[in-house]
C-alpha cells in the first residue's frame, strides 16, 4: 500500500481521528500535511510526524474560511507539491434540540462540516486531474444515516457530505480519482468525551461490540481507501461503528 512520493492533506489533524489518519498515511510513505486552527496546533502536528519519523508538517488553516483555505493550499503546493490525497476530517458539533437550536449553531456546523468539503475538494481537483490519480476521503458519521436527537445540524451536514461525495465520485471517476466516505460510530475522542455518563451508558447499549472505537481503527480504513488497492472503490460510505448501524 505504498504512498511514497504522494502528498496527502488531512484537515483537523491535531487530535483524535485526524491525528491517527495523518500517522497512518505517513506510515504508508505519504508526505502528510495536517491542518490545525492555531499555530500551536500546527506545531504539534509537525512534532508528532517528526517523532514518528515521517515526512510532513502542520499548517494553520480554518476550513470555515475560504481565504484561509486558499492560503493554506498555496503553502501546501509550494512546500510539499499538489496533494493527490485529501482527507476532510475537520469538524465541529454544536448540539441542541432543534427547538432550541440557534441560527449560528446551524450555520457554523454546516460551514465547517459541509461547505469546507466543497471548498477543499474543489481546490485540489485540478492537481488530481492532471496527475490522473486522486483520493478524496471524507469523514462522515454514523448519525448521517441514523439521525440523532440534538444533532439536526450535524446530521444534515454529514448526510450532505455523503451526497456530495457520490456526485464527486461520478464526475471524476474517469480521471482515476475516487471519492469515498468513512462513517465512524462512537470513537474514543474529545468529541465523545464531552458526553455525560447517562449518554455514554445509553450509547454502550446500542453498540454490539460493547466498547468505543479507537481512532486508529478509523484511520486504517482511510489508509486502505487512499491506497492503490482501493482504486475501484468509489462513491461508497464505509461504516466503522462496532455494529451499531449497518446502513
Amino acid at each position: 500500500m505504498s504512498l511514497e512520493g504522494k502528498t496527502a492533506l488531512v484537515t483537523g489533524a491535531t487530535r483524535g481521528i485526524g491525528k491517527a489518519i495523518a500517522r497512518a498515511l505517513a506510515e504508508q510513505g505519504a508526505t502528510v500535511v495536517g491542518t490545525a486552527t492555531s499555530e500551536n496546533g500546527a506545531e504539534s502536528i509537525s512534532a508528532d510526524l517528526k517523532a514518528a519519523g515521517a515526512k510532513g508538517f502542520g499548517i494553520v488553516m480554518n476550513v470555515a474560511d475560504p481565504d484561509s483555505i486558499d492560503a493554506g493550499l498555496k503553502e501546501v503546493n509550494e512546500k510539499a507539491g499538489a496533494p493527490v490525497i485529501l482527507v476532510n476530517n475537520a469538524g465541529i458539533t454544536r448540539d441542541n434540540l432543534l427547538m432550541r437550536l440557534k441560527d449560528d449553531d446551524w450555520t457554523s456546523v454546516v460551514e465547517t462540516n459541509l461547505s469546507s468539503v466543497y471548498r477543499t475538494s474543489k481546490a485540489v481537483l485540478r492537481g488530481m486531474a492532471k496527475a490522473r490519480w486522486g483520493r478524496v476521503i471524507n469523514i462522515s458519521s454514523v448519525v448521517a444515516g441514523m439521525g440523532n436527537p440534538g444533532q439536526a445540524n450535524y446530521c444534515a451536514a454529514k448526510a450532505g457530505v455523503e451526497g456530495f461525495t457520490r456526485s464527486l465520485a461520478k464526475e471524476m471517476s474517469n480521471r482515476g480519482i475516487t471519492a469515498n466516505c468513512v462513517a465512524p460510530g462512537f470513537i474514543d475522542t474529545d468529541m465523545t468525551r464531552k458526553l455525560d455518563d447517562k449518554q455514554r451508558e445509553a450509547m454502550m447499549e446500542v453498540i454490539p461490540a460493547g466498547r468505543l472505537g479507537e481512532p486508529e481503527e478509523v484511520a486504517a480504513v482511510v489508509a486502505f481507501l487512499a491506497s492503490e488497492a482501493a482504486g475501484y472503490v468509489t462513491g461508497e460510505t464505509i461504516h466503522v461503528n462496532g455494529g451499531m448501524y449497518m446502513g
Binding site: 485540478r126 486531474a129 464526475e171 471524476m172 474517469n174 480521471r175
Partner: peptide, 11 residues
C-alpha cells in the same frame, strides 16, 4: 472531448 475535458482544456 467530454464536458470534463473541455473544463480541463480551458484551465
Amino acid at each position: 472531448a467530454d464536458s470534463l475535458d473541455t473544463v480541463e482544456l480551458v484551465m
